[in-house]
Design a protein around this nucleic acid. Structure first.
Lengths: 145, 145
DNA sequence: ATAATAAATGAGACTTATTCTCATTTATTG
DNA sequence: CAATAAATGAGAATAAGTCTCATTTATTAT
């Protein structure tokens, strides 16, 4: 675990420091997206707040981290490693849980056709996309009772 | 214009006040999503900051307003009126412009099939969705030179 | 291994978006 | 038109995120 966080850093030519290793390990503890608050709790003040934000910025720069905002306006962060497959997000409006979901290849193929149309129509170069789905978990979400 | 903002409010059983009318009119001035800052400029201090936020909250509650966050973490807001068709968003990473886009019926149909699958798989009830596309406008965006 | 140098960190001050409070004003209704 | 409940304005309070700068740590060339 510690090994692979070191590797992520050195492979991307950023220096291997303790705070960076700790943040990566905290991020690796769960596969679904997590909030800054979640991270701070896991890190137990072993990394200064300013450093945490800086490290997250560094990880974004080397494309290892994706940051976005939940519908209730909370910043959320998730690791994007080589083996992370392309995915989308499902948001629970009751408990705030965010779940990674994959959609069928057939769908993804049609979506990329649509995206090419949009690129032409608006003279854009589109390099990423995501489908966000909003709803409520009907009974078995881990946070809702 | 003033007429229809009054109608939106009374149709939704919220009292018709000046700040609410002014905010609705400012929102109606552009069809693409706009920032809180854009709104404040249009309102020229005719509505207090605290009231602006409150009114936006009221409009969200009656489902007339949709609020979301741009990739550079700026809160953005757009009117959702009866005649607003279902659409998605295209973000320019250079100038921050956000453009409403529609996708083909064929695509939307396949997407709703996918969504039904996700609902079953995760025991969710999904009531909204949006496709976000990220890129850069290659030459003719109004804000980029 | 070590010293020199450049980069990263910690601590806390600072900024800025949003929310809250409470005294005053406005809209609704009967 | 008066009574009452709701909405507003002004500015204080909060909280997320950024910035500064003195100190520490990692890298590298010897």
């Amino acid at each position: 675990m510690s090994e692979s966080s070191r590797k992520i850093l050195s492979d991307n030519n950023v220096s291997v420091t303790n705070p960076r290793i700790l943040v990566l390990e905290a991020l690796m503890e769960s596969q679904n997206p997590q909030t800054i608050d979640d991270l701070q709790k896991k890190l137990e003040n072993k990394v200064a707040k300013s450093t945490l934000y800086r490290v997250l910025g560094d990880l974004k720069k080397i494309n290892v981290l994706h940051e976005f905002t939940s519908p209730d306006n909370i910043t959320v962060v998730e690791l994007l490693l080589h083996d992370t497959e392309h995915h989308h997000h499902l948001f629970c409006g009751d408990c705030g849980e965010i779940i990674d979901v994959s959609l069928s290849n057939e769908f993804e193929k049609l979506l990329s056709v649509e995206i090419k149309k949009i690129e032409r129509k608006f003279n854009f170069q589109i390099n990423d996309h995501r489908v966000e789905m909003f709803g409520t978990c009907t009974d078995q979400c881990s946070n809702c009772k």
